[in-house]
Design a protein around this nucleic acid. Sequence first.
DNA 1: CCGTACTTTCGGGATAAACTGAAAGTATGG
DNA 2: CCATACTTTCAGTTTATCCCGAAAGTACGG
Lengths: 169, 169
Amino acid sequence: MENKLHQARSRFIAEWGALGSAWGINRSMASIHARLLVAPDPMTADELMDDLELSRGNTSTNLRELVAWGLVRQVAVKGERRQFFLAEKEPWRIFVTIVRERLRRELDPALETLEDVAAMSEGLEGREAEEFHRVVTGMAGFIRTVRGLARRLVGSESSTLAGLARVLS
Amino acid sequence: MENKLHQARSRFIAEWGALGSAWGINRSMASIHARLLVAPDPMTADELMDDLELSRGNTSTNLRELVAWGLVRQVAVKGERRQFFLAEKEPWRIFVTIVRERLRRELDPALETLEDVAAMSEGLEGREAEEFHRVVTGMAGFIRTVRGLARRLVGSESSTLAGLARVLS
DNA sequence: CCGTACTTTCGGGATAAACTGAAAGTATGG
DNA sequence: CCATACTTTCAGTTTATCCCGAAAGTACGG
């Protein structure tokens, strides 16, 4: 019985790690996140370290990252000196957090550069320059629209999924 | 003038590469894609190679990948022996292609495993096992819903962005 | 404040991914 | 069917990233 749980948990952690890798999240961070997700109670860095066979340093660094992302928070347990970590478990909130952070960290700077570049190429002459300007401007506009939609989508705390489902059907 | 174009183009290519990296696409592939995006005419592997200072092998491999993704296609130019490559330039179509491919390559397998793991932990007893089952099941359900929505979103060839905008406002 | 329990930092090593360049492969025009 | 122009493959190298573990740092309880 215990064994079945361990087996399922390992697969879950491995799969979460793989998904993370495909999206630019490192394996340790994804593993720690996965482990915390399925823990009924907050865990300490030491427990995670032993469970996932990661080094102390690695565990510490990635826990900090997860806290910075807002996916995990530190909780104080009365009468305990060490820190405990607790993951957000509600899928919609996890999703919203990730989308928000990625918009902020990656899309916003990219969009700024793109609009910069579009402006730089304004009014240049020649086939190449004209096509460049046309494409970059179009791309920037599209991304700006997507960002706006994404922001509204993740703007509300409660799930907009049901609403979306209605529209797209 | 020529110079301004070059400068803007370099920045665009670099930015596209950075964006790609953050999303698990390698830099060469993203650079080639960016270069083709802003080209008024189809380009050959050699032109790309010189322009981006990549090796022949790297260029060839990543062009093939881009074709496999459906973001670039080969076109025949009359009276020319070598192959020319042309990128899809419409932002909405690019977006749809990428979303479709990533759903298929990453989300689908992940969801399958997740549902597997959820089934494995069905009926196990104990706090840990019960929480595990609860969380994994919830997660799988959520992802299934998201996938369904995404599929519908990218199901139509023409942009659904306008429709979305209406709903989310 | 001192000792101890806990956490973070960081230089160096390991690993994996990306990239190169040359050789092998393919196909087309003459 | 040969020569040549072009493309792909692949073994080896480089590069970037991740990860380890020890040492330094921090703060709490007594």
